[in-house]
């Protein structure tokens, strides 16, 4: 495995191999890769992704260099992305990049001879979040095939949605419902290439009782072209007790986090709420990913 730019970069077998390795790591398998250096180039804010990549690297005994905002780097002096990446590839064995521009990770991968991992590029993709999402689902149901999915929220600007939809092409979901206010519908470019059936809805109520996985996303305020458009849709959906009470037994709520108001905090104690468990799996799955890319 080389670069990880898109959720398409994993085959079904590779997803399952990474899940299996993450399971072994969770059970206590120790893997050490002491000579390696990971460079984190986070041009955009991050809590979970940056910290879990750092924690995963450190658990493997690797060193981490890099930055968590472009302040303090030569980018503020006008250095372009390509030159920044050229420097980082000289100093490390693998580059983890988050950037506000769509396609920045692919561009970085073309510049770098070292593997590049996309930790989120604009509104485009976030494939390692899909690893976390699918691993959580796999651990809960012991399968991904045959499940009913409901993706709720901002399906237009959420990069995690694009990656999850693409990742699901490697499995056989029974049905996928895309539930959003009309202005936040999923991108047609992404939908056109899917190899499974999907249904677009404005409201979740007709299908809630069928769903195994309810995947909620935050409205991506920072990606809206203007504030007026954001104001029209903000707080247009909330996962509350009424929704949770309609969910079938054993079904789960996931969220890539951070959340704002789209999940009522009362839901956090519900047995359906798995989003903090999901976040906890980010470290072992990213450890497994590093091992797959860099070798033991």
């Amino acid at each position: 495995m080389e670069d990880v730019i898109s959720a398409y970069d994993f085959s079904r077998d590779q997803y399952l191999e990474i899940f299996s390795l993450a399971d072994e790591i969770l059970k206590g398998r120790k893997i050490k890769m002491k000579e390696k250096i990971i460079a984190e180039a986070f041009f955009e804010p991050s809590t979970r992704t940056a910290l879990s990549f750092s924690a995963a690297a450190q658990r493997l005994g690797m060193n981490v260099i890099g930055f968590s905002s472009q302040e303090g780097t030569s980018v503020v002096k006008g250095e372009n992305l390509a030159d920044t990446i050229r420097m980082m590839e000289n100093y490390s064995d693998c580059i983890v990049i988050r950037h506000k521009f769509d396609g920045a990770a692919k561009f970085a991968a073309e510049v770098s001879s070292k593997p590049v991992i996309n930790a989120g590029d604009g509104k485009h993709e976030h494939p390692t979040q899909t690893l976390v999402d699918l691993y959580t689902i796999f651990k809960t149901f012991n399968t991904i095939d045959g499940l009913n999915f409901g993706l709720i929220g901002d399906l237009r600007y959420a990069r995690t949605v694009n990656s999850l939809l693409r990742g699901l092409t490697r499995f056989k979901p029974k049905s996928v419902y895309l539930i959003s206010p009309p202005p936040l519908k999923a991108r047609k470019e992404i939908l056109r290439e899917l190899n499974y059936e999907y249904v677009e809805l404005n409201s979740p109520y007709d299908v809630l009782h069928d769903l195994d996985v309810v995947y909620v996303t935050r409205i991506q305020k920072e990606r809206f072209p203007d504030e007026v458009e954001y104001e029209k849709v903000k707080e247009s959906y909330t996962i509350d007790e009424k929704i949770v009470n309609s969910m079938r037994k054993g079904s789960i709520i996931l969220h890539p986090l951070p959340r704002v108001n789209e999940i009522d905090r009362k839901i956090d104690v519900s047995p359906h709420a798995k989003y903090f468990y999901q976040a906890s799996l980010a470290v072992p799955i990213r450890q497994a990913l590093f091992v797959k890319i860099l070798g033991e």
Partner: peptide, 28 residues
């Protein structure tokens, strides 16, 4: 990114020939 880095070069793949639809290799 192709509109925002001085080294960026646009690249499109044709996903449909009739009608013509080209897709950006970087951002779709």
């Amino acid at each position: 990114i192709t509109n925002n880095d001085p080294e960026g070069i646009s690249k499109f793949s044709s996903v449909s020939k009739v009608p013509i639809v080209l897709k950006c290799d970087y951002c779709d």
